[in-house]
């Protein structure tokens, strides 16, 4: 069983929902990424999504674009992200780490070398935004044989046929993009999410996380009530942006702890 699967099993046994915070690796700088991962865990993260910065992040809004540009200016790369995961894994053997990014840095390294290096470093899952299942069957096979879960996106526009396709190709969990738009965009439609999630869960047979548009304890709580996991990204980047360096770690930890408390409240624990 993968680290991601056992995490969800453990949560389900206690009736709790997974909290999946996202940070961009290398933002605000490479030295702070590992301490930030520890802060996320201390605040109550169940899984960490680590953004691999890309020069052309088409699916991201201004906040993550800025973070990506800054990270790249500081010299962050896919290989360095994998090194950071290796360091994290040396000290933490339970919290799953999912790399989230775009296809080109992976293709530049080569799919084979990337999957081998990621698996060796202790990466648990990979979400490649611009790899729909029909374009990445070789990558999917490589990841699967290396024991890495490939996470796929579903959107409000996705058809039910699509549910089955990602269920077949993906594993670990499904990331439901709760609004039309880019990361960090406006408000989400709770009723739409509440209606769709049970259908998706029934069709895919794996946990469903919801992201894009979750900004505070209140929205996390409402989404948490209808889903298996809550992904929160741009809002954490904003927290880092707004903090002065000495306070960054404490501020991020406190923010994540607030979301954790709200989520646990909605689960009734």
């Amino acid at each position: 069983m993968s680290r991601i699967q056992s995490t969800f099993q453990g949560l389900q046994a206690t009736g709790r929902k997974a909290l999946i915070p996202f940070i961009t690796a290398g933002y605000p700088d490479g030295a702070l990424t590992l301490p930030l991962m520890r802060a996320l865990v201390a605040g109550g993260a169940d899984i960490i999504e680590l953004g691999v910065p890309f020069s052309d992040p088409m699916a991201d809004g201004p906040t993550i674009q800025r973070a990506s540009e800054r990270a790249l200016a500081g010299g962050m790369s896919l290989r360095r992200v994998i090194d950071i995961v290796r360091q994290f894994r040396a000290e933490d053997d339970t919290i799953p780490v999912v790399l989230m990014g775009y296809a080109n840095p992976i293709e530049a390294m080569s799919q084979e070398l990337f999957v081998a290096a990621a698996a060796e470093a202790g990466v648990d899952g990979v979400l490649v935004v611009d790899y729909p299942p029909e374009e990445c069957s070789e990558f999917t096979a490589l990841a699967r044989s290396a024991g890495i879960d490939q996470i796929f996106l579903l959107a409000p526009t996705s058809s039910e046929r699509r549910f089955r396709e990602v269920a077949e190709a993906g594993s670990g969990y499904i990331y439901y993009v709760s609004l039309k738009g880019v990361t960090g965009a406006g408000s989400l439609d709770f009723d739409e999410v509440a209606q769709r999630i049970p259908k998706i869960r029934a069709a895919v047979g794996m946990p469903v996380g919801v992201g894009f548009g979750i900004r505070d304890a209140e929205s996390a709580k409402r989404i948490g009530a209808v889903t298996d996991a809550v992904v929160i990204g741009s809002r954490i980047i904003e927290e880092i942006e707004a903090s002065s360096r000495p306070q960054t770690l404490a501020r991020v930890e406190t923010f994540v702890r607030g979301i954790r408390a709200a989520l646990d409240e909605s689960a009734g624990t």
Binding site: M58, A59, A103, V129, D130, Y131, P132, E134, E135, F152, L153, L154, A155, P156, T157, S158, S159, R162, V166, V177, K180, G181
Partner: peptide
């Protein structure tokens, strides 16, 4: 599926696939 040999294709986020 939009392939010219190894080139082309549909490499976009899921939100755009139905469009």
């Amino acid at each position: 599926r939009g392939h010219f040999g190894p080139y082309g294709g549909v490499f976009v986020a899921e939100t755009l696939m139905p469009a």
